[in-house]
Amino acid sequence: MEIKTVGVAGTLESSDIQIMISAGQNGIEVDLDSEVAKSYGDQIKKVITETLNKFGITNAKVKATDKGALDCVIAARTLAAAQRATETTDQPRLEVLQ
């Protein structure tokens, strides 16, 4: 899937995560900011990368600012940002979240 613009979803409020996706060349590069990065950083990155791969994105720069989001929130925000970045919001791909 081609990234056409910058896609953002989520907020900086508690229990949420803000995901910003832009075009990249070296696989999925996740720049993560999280107070729980030490314990859950790898898991958060894994959820983001898997969601993007399932959606069909294999190269992207991702900036993630986490405020303690659960995995389901991370996946949902990632999908929303990916659909915005690829300008495909008119065709929701909710099956990616299953």
Partner: peptide, 24 residues
């Protein structure tokens, strides 16, 4: 009640406005 919550809410709302203007 929750330290920092308002600050985060304000910055989030400002960024949301910027994203709406395609300013990332």
């Amino acid at each position: 009640a929750v330290h920092g919550a308002r600050f985060n809410q304000i910055v989030s709302a400002l960024q949301e406005y910027l994203f709406g203007q395609k300013i990332y």
